[in-house]
Amino acid sequence: MQRKNLFDGDSYKAQFALITYRWLMSHRWVSYADIMADYIGVTIKELPANLSNCNGYGELKKVVGTLKKAIADKLEKDVSECFEEEGNNRNKRFRYVGKDDDPLADMRNAKVINNLRQYWKFCQDSAGFFPKSWLEYFFHDCQDLLDMKAKRQKGEQVISSSLDRILTNIEYLPQLYEAITNKTVMEIEYKPYDEEQITLLFHPHYLKEYNGRWHLFGHAEGREPEFGYNIALDRIQEKPRERSKVEYVSAPDHFYDEFFKDIVGVSHMKDFPNKEHIVIRAHEHYIFKLIDTKPLHHSYEVVKPYGLYEDGEYAEFSVDVESNNEFIGRVLQMGAGLEVMSPPQIRKIFAKRVKDMALHYIEPGEKLQRMVPNTEEPLES
């Protein structure tokens, strides 16, 4: 009878089996505490004094015994010939002393194959989420692409995106992705907003999509900033060209982690380069729940839960961000439901935007009335 794959699934048993097997194949001494700490992601000192208080401890003890027997059976030996043990209870530890460094390779490979099958199925089902150009490029002349198209034609596609992925120059995405991974310098004909077309010698580092628009970040020779130069894909004028003889300049380690950390979207504003602690009031419970379930930024914190206060019914939350057009747009998107309370300089930015916007909706006669003050003297009685 074929033994069930000990490594398959997401149960305690499967997870403990994978961790234990990895320890054993290193030929190091290992204890139940080592395995549990590895599973939880803590040090042994951070574990409870009594291991039985840890979730899954009973399964762990069973798995170790089952795994040791499976290894011994595979090697056609007794368990005592394959393992050394010492200590007892919490201090009990054991190690593998067999000569085969991967006796359960068949089981592990079967799990890998199963994972790949699941991934393959996901790729097929999620064809509607990825841009068509990605699929056409990376699955070219591949049966998978034909299967994806067949699924779509039969109405069997089960994942899709709300955004329209047929965007200007989106077909350049695969080429730019490969330029990043292969560290290839590109020559790009680019037309910035409201400026003349320029030729950039560009060292691509990072691709990011925001609000349905793709941006390429990198180092543009002779341009500022040195790193994090932002190219909107829809403003590229022709297919980028490779410049293989130019030495590629990489971004500093973790540069883009820091670059995006304190902003919403993709841009930094020169007028407001510093992070601000911004407090925003939600005047409607519905609007507050929208923000609470989909925060504007990872720094989001509730300052006041929604409730009735002396000055009204509302909730307040804070974000620590640089002010940019994307952040302003996200807040104004909620209309009168959100109000920026502080700091004053950020509130003024929003006040001006709202006033300018309101002017477009004032009728001509009302505009004139607002522009000409009432100078008539009151009639004497």
Rank of each mutant, 00 (worst) to 15 (best):
I278W: 01
K304Q: 12
E310A: 11
D262H: 03
S299V: 06
L308K: 14
H277V: 09
G307C: 10
Y309H: 07
E284L: 12
H268Q: 12
D292T: 03
F259V: 00
P295C: 14
K289L: 14
E258Y: 14
I287Q: 04
H254Q: 08
V303G: 01
F272G: 02
N274T: 01
I263P: 08
K289M: 15
V303W: 04
K289E: 15
P305H: 09
I291P: 01
F260T: 01
E284V: 02
E284H: 10
Y309G: 02
I278M: 05
H285N: 15
I263K: 12
F272M: 07
K270E: 13
S299I: 06
G307T: 04
E258A: 13
H283V: 11
G265L: 04
H268N: 12
D311A: 08
H277F: 07
D311S: 08
P273H: 08
F259D: 06
D262W: 05
D292S: 08
H285A: 15
V279T: 13
D292Y: 01
K289P: 03
I280A: 00
H298E: 02
H285C: 04
R281W: 10
F288R: 05
F259I: 00
H268Y: 15
K261W: 10
E313Y: 03
E313D: 13
F272Q: 09
T293D: 01
I291W: 01
D262I: 06
